[in-house]
C-alpha cells in the first residue's frame, strides 16, 4: 500500500526524519510510535504532502505521490487529527461531506454517504446532522472527524494522535470502535501516537521512531519480545511488558482440557482480561466457552502467566 524509501526531511541542520524505509501492507493498521520530537508526525504528514520531503520517495498504491498535484492526492487519502479540525461554520453533515463535495459527487450520493457514515459512527442522523461542531461533546467531535476522513472511501487513512484529546474511558471505546470499523471496511490505516498501550492495542505492526530514525518496525509481539535497542525497551516499560504481552493473545490460545468452577470466560477475551477475572474471583482456573456458548475447556492461572514470560 505504502512504500517509503530513503525518506528524509531536514529543517535547518536537523534531520527531523532521517532516511526512513518502510513498507505498509494494504488492509492493516500500522502504528508509528515515538516521543514528541521523534519525527513521527512529520513522517505521517509527508505521505499526504502536508510536509514536502527533502529527499526520498513515497509510493502510495504504486503511484509516486510527489508527481501528482497535492490537492488531488489529499482527496484520495483520509486524514484525522487530535484536535479534529472540524470546520466550525459548517454543520456535522456538511463537514462529513467535505471531500465528496470537492470530488463533485452528486447530491443524493453525498447525502446517502453521510447518513451511512453517521450510522457507522453511532451518531443519530436526525439528531446530529444539522448541529454545529461546538454543540457536540469531545467524543462526538472526534467521531465526526474520523467519519469526515473516511467519507470518500479512501483506501488509506492517516491519523495523527486521533484519540489524544479524549478522556481515558471514551478513548478505550473509540479505539475498539476504530478497530472494528477498520476490520469491516478494510481501510489501510497509518496512525501516529506517543502511547505504547494504544500502539499495542491497535497496531498490526508497530514502527518505533526516535530522533528521526526508524528504530524498529515489526508486529507488536515481536517488539515486546525482542526490543531492538534500549530506547524501544524503555518506551515499552519493563514493569508493564508482561501485561502488554497478555493483551495480544486470546484465552482461546491458552485453553487446556479439563473443567473448572464458577462463571465461564469467553474464548475471544484477551489473556489480560482472563487474568484479571481469575485474580479478582480468587480462582486458580475458570471454564472457557466459545462464541456459540459451547464449553471448550478451561484456562488456569499458571497457563496464562506462562504466556506472559519473554519468549525464547
Amino acid at each position: 500500500m505504502i512504500d517509503l524509501s530513503h525518506l528524509t526531511k531536514v529543517y535547518g541542520d536537523t534531520a527531523v526524519v532521517d532516511d526512513v524505509n518502510m513498507h505498509v501492507e494494504a488492509g492493516t493498521i500500522t502504528v508509528i510510535v515515538g516521543t514528541s520530537g521523534s519525527g513521527k508526525s512529520t513522517l505521517l504528514r509527508m505521505v499526504n504532502r502536508l510536509v514536502e520531503p527533502t529527499k526520498g520517495r513515497i509510493l502510495v498504491q504504486g503511484r509516486d505521490v510527489l508527481k501528482m498535484p497535492a490537492y488531488e492526492l489529499r482527496r484520495s487519502i483520509g486524514y484525522a487529527i487530535q484536535s479534529h479540525g472540524l470546520f466550525p461554520h459548517w454543520t456535522v453533515a456538511r463537514n462529513i461531506a467535505t471531500v465528496p463535495m470537492l470530488l463533485g459527487w452528486d447530491r443524493k450520493k453525498v447525502a446517502a454517504r453521510v447518513e451511512e457514515l453517521m450510522e457507522l459512527f453511532q451518531l443519530d442522523h436526525a439528531q446530529f446532522a444539522g448541529r454545529y461542531p461546538h454543540e457536540l461533546s469531545g467524543g462526538q467531535q472526534q467521531r465526526v472527524g474520523v467519519a469526515r476522513a473516511m467519507a470518500a472511501k479512501p483506501a488509506l487513512l492517516l491519523m495523527d494522535e486521533p484519540f489524544g484529546a479524549l478522556d481515558p474511558i471514551i478513548r478505550g471505546k473509540a479505539q475498539a470502535d476504530l478497530k472494528a470499523i477498520q476490520r469491516r471496511t478494510g481501510t489501510t490505516i497509518l496512525l501516529v501516537t506517543h502511547d505504547m498501550d494504544e500502539a499495542i492495542h491497535l497496531g498490526d505492526r508497530i514502527a518505533v521512531m526516535d530522533a528521526g530514525q526508524l528504530k524498529q518496525y515489526a508486529p507488536a509481539a515481536d517488539i515486546l519480545a525482542r526490543p531492538a535497542d534500549a530506547f524501544v525497551d524503555d518506551l515499552i516499560g519493563t514493569a508493564d511488558r508482561p501485561f502488554h504481552y497478555l493483551t495480544l493473545g486470546t484465552l482461546g490460545s491458552a485453553v487446556e482440557p479439563g473443567e473448572a468452577d464458577g462463571a465461564p470466560l469467553a474464548a475471544s477475551a484477551s489473556l489480560y482480561e482472563g487474568l484479571g477475572a481469575l485474580l479478582w474471583s480468587g480462582r486458580k482456573a475458570a471454564p472457557v466457552i466459545g462464541d456459540d456458548g459451547a464449553p471448550l475447556g478451561r484456562v488456569s492461572l499458571s497457563g496464562i502467566t506462562d504466556r506472559a514470560a519473554q519468549p525464547r
Partner: peptide
C-alpha cells in the same frame, strides 16, 4: 485555528477553495 486550516488542506482543498470556503 491551525487545525482547521490544516484540515482544509489535508481534505484536498486548493488554496483558492480553502480561502473561499474556510
Amino acid at each position: 485555528p491551525p487545525a482547521v486550516v490544516e484540515s482544509a488542506s489535508a481534505m484536498g482543498m486548493t488554496g483558492r477553495q480553502r480561502l473561499l470556503k474556510v
